[in-house]
Every structure is written in structure tokens, then in C-alpha cells.
Design a protein around this nucleic acid. Structure first.
Length: 284
DNA sequence: ATGCATCTGCGTCAATAGAA
DNA sequence: TTCTATTGACGCAGATGCAT
């Protein structure tokens, strides 16, 4: 559950106020004598499924199933991969009217260091990239939106419709080599072979381009469109991963708050008892 | 049931840091 | 210098809770 923290028997804070801990919400019997780092190095994923297959919801019900062993989104190596991305029209046509306003706003803003760096600065280790199973102290048991229990089998055989990109794994035939079919209503079909880099987490690398239009123009346009799709796809996944890490980072901070509050309480109690002892000996 | 406010997650763009 | 990864900001859509 979001907002819940479990650390040495300490439980939670209201969802709307993640850092708010009343003095009474900690277990009074707990005395923290040594506080370890809240964030363990090489911690592992909080998102795990038995089959290591997770559906990634895209817009309008599109689903990606990819093999990325070092990613949160995983499938069994060599398993069928299906990607269907419906072209979302030409969003390149951005109006320049409010672009200047956006730019001005962004110019004012400063960039924070990455969560990895923040966690390192906190001395609590790093958020691991390779994730296999739940971490111990940052385990949150949250219900992942990437839950894999509900992968419909029909996603393994998508129907190619005009304006779509479809990835179909060749499975055991050619290791790591897959075929990406771009079907475009205006330009006709184009087949792209790509090498899947499943081991290092890379998504795919275009290798050969075949087919397509006549002359340089359409080919260049297709290449640019394909590059754009690749870029958007990668950034989509990157944003997803970034948000996951951000949530993990926040939960770790909440954990840290809980631990430090416990430590503070223990020190206050210790100080209190020492004062009493001192007063007793002084009065004698 | 309906309308509204709020929250949450997503995709995208753009800026930036760091690697190559 | 170029490329890639990361992440803040923005806008959108769906879910949820609450008042009417």
C-alpha cells in the first residue's frame, strides 16, 4: 500500500501526508541501538512476477511485451515479443505560440540531480538497475500497475493494421534477431530487421532496412519517422522507469524518516533516563 | 445519477549530465 | 562534439470521493 512504511515495527503514515509521523505512531517498545542504511545497495526490484512477463499499457490499449532482463519490464528470454504502436498522428506540428512561454518557464527552473545521486549522497546506496526480486527494506508490496497476471494471450498474435509497427520475435530461429514490420497506409510496407540486445537491456538496434518507397525522399521520411518512433518508445520506457525510481526514492525517504524518528525517540528516552540517574545520585 | 475537485499515471517535450 | 540517459514540466485521461 502506498504511504505505508515498515521499519522495525513502525507502521505508516496517511497517504496524503507521507512524511507526517505523529509521536504515537511508532512502536514505543522499539529501541534502535544501531541504525543501518535505509537504502540497501544492490536492492532489487519491487516489481516481480513469476513468469517475468509484464504488460505495458500504452495509449489506446496498445501493449508492449519486450525482453529486457535488466529492466523492470521483463519477459522470459526468447519468448515471443509483440509490439504494436499505433501512430498517433503528426504531433510534430507544435504550435510555437506558447513555446516561448514554456521555454521561459523552464529556463527559470533548475535541474535536480538524479535520484541515484541523491540516494548516494544520502549514503544509502543506490537504486539498482538490474532488478529481480523485492528489496528488503524498501520493499513496499505495492500493487504494480505493471502486474503481469493478466496478460491476455491474444496479445501474442496482434493483427497488423495500417499505420502500425509490429515486432515479432523469431524466437529460436535466429538468436536475438527480430523483424519489425512497419505498415503505413501512405507509403506501403517496410520491413526492418533489428537485433535484440536482451542481455544488456537495450531494446533493439536497427540492422537492415528493406523495401519501402521509390527514391530517396520516402525512404528518408520513413527513416526519420522510424527514428522518431524509436526515440519515443525509448523515452516512454525511460519515463516509466524514472517514475518508478522516483516512487521508490520517496518510499525510501519515508523509511528513513521512520528510522530516524525511532532513533530520535530512543535517544530522548536514553537522555531522560540518564538525567534521572544523575539526579538520583546527586541527591544521595 | 450527476457534476465537480482531486489524485494518479501516462506520453511527450525539452533541458541537462555524463559517457563515448 | 555527439550521443544517450535521466528527469522536470506539461497536458491529458481515467479513477475516486464528495456534495447536490
Amino acid at each position: 500500500m502506498d504511504g505505508m512504511v515498515e521499519e522495525n515495527g513502525t507502521t505508516g503514515n496517511p497517504p496524503g501526508d507521507p512524511l507526517a509521523h505523529s509521536p504515537g505512531d511508532t512502536n514505543s517498545s522499539v529501541v534502535v541501538t544501531s541504525v543501518q542504511s535505509v537504502i540497501q545497495p544492490n536492492q532489487q526490484s519491487v516489481i516481480q512476477t513469476p513468469a517475468n512477463i509484464q504488460p505495458v499499457q500504452l495509449q489506446k490499449g496498445n501493449v508492449i511485451l519486450v525482453s529486457k532482463p535488466n529492466s523492470v519490464i521483463q519477459t522470459t528470454p526468447g519468448s515471443l515479443q509483440t509490439l504494436q504502436v499505433v501512430e498517433a498522428g503528426s504531433d510534430d506540428s507544435l504550435s510555437n505560440d506558447d513555446e516561448s512561454a514554456k521555454k521561459t518557464r523552464r529556463d527559470i527552473l533548475t535541474r535536480r540531480p538524479s535520484y541515484r545521486k541523491i540516494l548516494n549522497d544520502l549514503g544509502g546506496g543506490e537504486i539498482a538497475v538490474g532488478r529481480v526480486e523485492s528489496s528488503s527494506e524498501c520493499d513496499t508490496n505495492e500493487d504494480s500497475e505493471l502486474s503481469t497476471n493478466s496478460i491476455p494471450s491474444q496479445y501474442q498474435t496482434q493483427t497488423v493494421i495500417p499505420g502500425t509497427i509490429q515486432l515479432a520475435s523469431q524466437g529460436e530461429t535466429v538468436q536475438g534477431l527480430h523483424t519489425l514490420t512497419m505498415t503505413n497506409a501512405s507509403t506501403g510496407g517496410a520491413i526492418v530487421h533489428y537485433a535484440s540486445q536482451g542481455q544488456d537491456g537495450q531494446f533493439f538496434v536497427p540492422v537492415v532496412t528493406q523495401g519501402g518507397g521509390i527514391g530517396g525522399g520516402p525512404i528518408i521520411a520513413e527513416d526519420q519517422a522510424r527514428k522518431r518512433e524509436m526515440r519515443l518508445l525509448k523515452n516512454r520506457e525511460a519515463a516509466r522507469e524514472c517514475r518508478r525510481k522516483k516512487k521508490e526514492y520517496i518510499k525510501c525517504l519515508e523509511n528513513r524518516v521512520a528510522v530516524l524518528e525511532n532513533q530520535n525517540k530512543a535517544l530522548i528516552d536514553e537522555l531522560k533516563s540518564l538525567k534521572e540517574l544523575y539526579c538520583q545520585q546527586k541527591s544521595e
